[in-house]
């Protein structure tokens, strides 16, 4: 009998940029996955030690606990403004903001639009799960038509509550935005594409090419009142048709070095 020798190789490990701690996120929530994708990119690009994160108000208000990089929590919606202040005085650092849909698409529309318009050299990760998670499942600007939430108990009615706001399309139309991509995390193939987009977004910043944003379609099993698996199917069958996936803008042009 021959025993074949083989060497053990680690094929999956915790990224160095991800803190070794217990998460507060609900079971099945995709925030943890989004964190992991960002952390893997920070490791791969070797920028963890020079990266500054701006966390939002919302479920990700505790994001500081999960990333091994310096961070600050911004007022609700103002993360792009705080990130602007950080980046302008620290042009040698990598600055990213992590925002939800209530934060970015509702209360913080002015801040995100103008950060993009200035071609601010920051990266924004935009988690869109069509609902206010932290406050218990209220209607968001990105809630789907007919979607029942605690503040649209009879479903989102277009006549009185309007239609879902497509922020990435809006931002892609701004000259200052260099890279805008919408990806999803509902299956492994899409997750790989999401990571690729996140990597590209940080590379845009590293190369001083201007403003970059990645929208990630995400879930909220708790407030959607679904099992995690049902929530993934719901992203695929309900959200993706409304929020089509892909790179909405991928400009090679260098918008110029911002900051002094």
């Amino acid at each position: 009998m021959t025993i074949e020798s083989y060497s053990e190789a680690i094929v999956a490990d915790r990224p160095k940029a991800l803190s070794k701690t217990q998460s507060h996120y609900c079971p099945g929530c995709l925030h943890g996955l989004a964190h992991r994708l960002i952390a893997e990119v920070l490791d791969e690009l070797a920028i963890r030690g020079t990266t500054l994160m701006v966390a939002p108000v919302g479920c990700a208000v505790f994001a500081s606990n999960y990333f091994e990089c310096d961070s600050v929590v911004a007022p609700h919606g103002r993360a792009p403004a705080v990130a602007t202040g950080l980046k302008r005085v620290s042009p040698d650092k990598i600055v990213f903001a992590y925002q939800g849909d209530g934060d970015l698409a509702s209360i913080g529309t002015a801040e995100i639009i103008h950060a993009a318009a200035r071609g601010e050299s920051i990266t924004v990760i935009f988690i869109n799960n069509a609902v206010y998670g932290m406050t218990g499942g209220q209607m968001a600007p990105t809630s789907l038509v007919g979607m029942k939430t605690t503040s649209s108990p009879f479903g989102r009615d277009v006549k009185t509550m309007g239609s879902p706001l497509k922020m990435s399309e809006l931002i892609a139309g701004i000259d200052g935005a260099t890279f805008v991509s919408r990806r999803s995390m509902h299956n492994p193939a899409e997750i790989r594409k999401a990571k690729k987009a996140i990597r590209r977004a940080f590379e845009v910043q590293i190369n001083h090419q201007g403003f970059s944003l990645v929208e990630l379609l995400s879930n909220c099993p708790t407030n959607w009142q679904m099992t995690p698996l049902e929530s993934l199917r719901w992203i695929e069958t309900r959200m993706v048709p409304v929020f089509p996936l892909g790179d909405l803008k991928n400009a090679a042009a260098n918008n110029g070095l911002k900051g002094v």
Partner: peptide, 24 residues
């Protein structure tokens, strides 16, 4: 002087930019 000046989109923007710069 090679220092930072930025006209913000609003006073909300301005004070939060100050917050960010002060954090640095």
């Amino acid at each position: 002087l090679g220092r930072v000046f930025l006209q913000a989109e609003s006073e909300l923007g301005a004070i939060n930019m100050v917050y960010g710069a002060a954090c640095a």
